[in-house]
Structures are given as structure tokens and as C-alpha cells.
Design a protein around this nucleic acid. Structure first.
Lengths: 216, 216
DNA sequence: ATTAACTTAATACGATCGTATAAAAACAGC
DNA sequence: GCTGTTTTTATACGATCGTATTAAGTTAAT
């Protein structure tokens, strides 16, 4: 009938930290549902049952919200790994393996959760704000891993470069995460790690050096 | 001054297959430049120095163009692996290692190339058209890998499940690719694979079983 | 030279994007 | 119960999105 009348709805106030978390949670859900390319602040706000303006009010921009969501998701891995490292009376080797196991623990492997973290890796490729958060997170993560690796290798006086070993272990973890995010529940991630680190040598590895040399 | 007058530019005709490839190449470049979320058919057409309508004329949709670009990029890995497998007089084990080495060969590791293939993994998470192409590609890839693994294991009468070993190797490859796409040239991918498959056992692995059991 | 088949370009359409602004609603302190 | 502050909503803006339509240009066959 009539033209547009401004009809404001009622609402309840909440502390900013709660609203921020609601938006972060909604961003996480939207990322899983719609992917990194089809996500928008409008869809996020609707998912959170909040108005569009809330994003700008509580975050500087969409990118900022994405970065904060990445930080939140990563904090959950950190909880797992720190719990593992808080165990007492572990040898350096046991500490390293506890760390790796924590990364592949069921609690850290919720399908949507791994999927979202994976999507952030691709966002980090070209989104500077996300990239900054990504780099901070993985610099710290890799730093912790490198410390554990070094402790193990100090005891063993190996000729290997701890940095290379660390990168190799990062690749191993990320690879298992990627497989999991694209096709969850095909294989137990802990078994995969175990297999790669302990089981493949005798079966598959005796000829790698030769094959590499032939192929290069 | 005057209103809009339709001023058509001159152009030269090319066979559809050439125009299609020009659009695919442009899509690849745009994906690297702008990422999976900020790519658009307009930007792609501009990059190809063609008009917007060309996308719809040569492809059914944007998603179709993306899927075709993924297929094109994957065909380049396939070339590498098939070249490796065409080598004669290799033992099953050598064939497997040649395959893995081919996946990590410099020619397959152009930074932009790995980056783009990586971005398609994230697109495949929610884009059905891309997902379909992705699944076809990796089903075939994984099938080839599984055959090689089985051949090795038949000779060795291991108790391991070839499917699990195959998934583990897929994770290894993807992990190295991901590391490479986020930070190229930090470590030689072939060395990483070699390290994981041959070098880590003695150093790091003797306690994994125990750590896994403690943590679960 | 004309025509027919086709590429290619130009443009339109409705929808949605991220951000910005202003008004209304809620609440704390008095 | 009023007042000032801050949260929240509503709405506007210009830009860009994917797709569809139409017209113009090119080419090859007649």
C-alpha cells in the first residue's frame, strides 16, 4: 500500500566481544556452506541473524572479519598441541610425536573445521589481510615444531638440517589435512602419519635415491 | 557530445579451439593474480583481450571455464608422470619412485602452476562443476598411483593395505605441493619427499606408536 | 558479388557486492 | 524518568557480478 516506512525492529544489546564471536562463528559456517569465493558480508550477517551494519561496526572490514575467523580456528589447534606438550616426563622424541598426534587428533579433525582452515590457505594466497594472519599463525606453529625437532636431533647428532626436517613435517601434516578436507573418513589420519613416518621405508623407499637421480 | 553510438571494432576470426585456449590461459593468469574469490569473467576477458561475450560463446558458463582450466593444468602433470612411466626396464619400485619424482619435478613445480592447482582444490570444495572435474582427475591420478603401489607390494608380500599406502602417498604429494604454493623455494621438494620416505624413520619415528597410544 | 554461417563485440538486465551514513532502539548512570 | 553513550538497524551508493540478447564484423562457399 503505502511507501517505505522506517520500521525498526527491537533487539537486545550484547557486549561487543559476544557479537564479534557470533559473527566469527557465522563466518565459519558460511565458509563451509558456500566456500571462499561465494561468501559475502550480507550472507554472514543473515547467518548470524544480525544486520549488515554489524560487520562494519565490530570489524574494520570483511577481510578483517575473515582474518579474525582464521585466528579463532587456529586457536583450537593450538589448544590441542599445547595440551599435548603439557604432558610431563616425555622424551624429546615423545614430545614431537605427541605434538604431531595432537594435530591429527579427532578433536582437531572435525570435517568442517579442517575444511575452513584449508580454505583460508587459498585466501591467504591473494588476500593481504588474511595472509598476514596466516603468516603469523604458521610462523609460530612452525617455530614450535622446529624446537621439538631440534631437541630430538640434538640428542641424536644427526647430519640432517632441522629446518628441512621441520618443513617436511609441515608438508606431511598439511597433506593429511588436505586429504581429509577433500575426502574425510577415508583413512585414519593418525594411521597415515604413522605409516609415512615408520611404515613406508622398508616397503617403498630403498630406490628413491636412484629414481631421483635418473629423473633429474 | 552525442549519445551512445554503437562503434564496433574490427577483429580477426580464429578457430574455436584457439579462442578457448586463450581464455583458459587468461583464466590461469587471473587465478594467480587475483585469487579464487576475486576472479570474474570480465577480468578474464580483459586479460585475454577479448570481449565479455566470448566466455559464454565458447563455454557454457564461468564454472565451465574454470573446470576446463583445471583440466588443462592437470594435463601438464599427467604429461610429466606419463613420461616418467614410459621409461623402460624399471622395477615396480623404480616405477613408483619415478612417478613420485615426476610429480615433484621442476617442470611440474612452476610456482604459479602449483598455486593455481591448489586454488582449484578449494574451489572444488563448494563448486559442483569444478568438483566434478577435480574428482575425475584425482580418481584417475590416484588409480595410477594405486596400481604402482600394488605392483611394489605384490612383490614384497607385505601386510599393508595398498589403499592406505596410496592415500598416504597422495597426502605426501599434496602436502609438498601446498607448502610449495604458499612458500616456494624454501626447500627442494624432491629432497622433502626423499627425506620423508627414507630419512625420517631412524631419527624421529621409533616412538610414534607409543605417542599415538598415549594420546588416544 | 552475394549469401549464409559463424565468430566476435556491444550492450542490457537484475542481482549482489563492500562500504558508508543516519536514524532508531537499548541501556547505564544519575 | 530523563540523558548521554553506544549498539543496532535500515537504507543508500556506486561498482561489479554472471548471464542473456542483439547487432556487427569476418570468412568461406557459391
Amino acid at each position: 500500500m503505502s511507501g517505505k516506512e522506517s520500521v525498526s525492529r527491537s533487539f537486545s544489546k550484547k557486549p561487543p566481544v559476544e557479537r564479534r564471536q557470533e559473527l566469527i562463528d557465522a563466518t565459519f559456517r558460511c565458509l563451509c556452506k558456500y566456500g571462499a569465493s561465494d561468501i559475502s558480508v550480507r550472507i554472514i550477517a543473515r547467518e548470524a541473524q544480525l544486520s549488515l551494519g554489524m560487520v562494519r561496526h565490530h570489524f574494520r572490514s570483511k577481510d578483517e572479519l575473515l582474518a579474525e575467523t582464521l585466528k579463532f580456528l587456529s586457536s583450537k589447534v593450538k589448544e590441542q598441541t599445547q595440551k599435548a606438550l603439557s604432558m610431563k616426563d616425555l622424551t624429546p622424541s615423545e614430545r614431537l610425536h605427541a605434538f604431531i598426534s595432537a594435530c591429527l587428533h579427532p578433536e582437531a579433525l572435525d570435517a568442517n573445521y579442517v575444511k575452513a582452515r584449508f580454505l583460508f590457505w587459498s585466501l591467504a594466497q591473494t588476500n593481504p589481510t588474511v595472509r598476514k594472519a596466516h603468516d603469523e599463525i604458521y610462523r609460530r606453529f612452525e617455530g614450535e615444531l622446529r624446537t621439538l625437532v631440534s631437541d630430538v636431533m640434538d640428542n641424536q647428532r644427526q647430519a640432517l638440517d632441522p629446518d628441512i626436517v621441520t618443513i617436511a613435517l609441515m608438508a606431511l601434516l598439511k597433506g593429511i589435512w588436505v586429504e581429509w578436507s577433500l575426502a574425510p573418513n577415508r583413512a585414519d589420519p593418525l594411521k597415515l602419519a604413522e605409516l609415512i613416518l615408520t611404515g613406508l621405508q622398508g616397503t617403498l623407499s630403498e630406490k628413491l635415491d636412484r629414481a631421483v637421480q635418473k629423473n633429474s
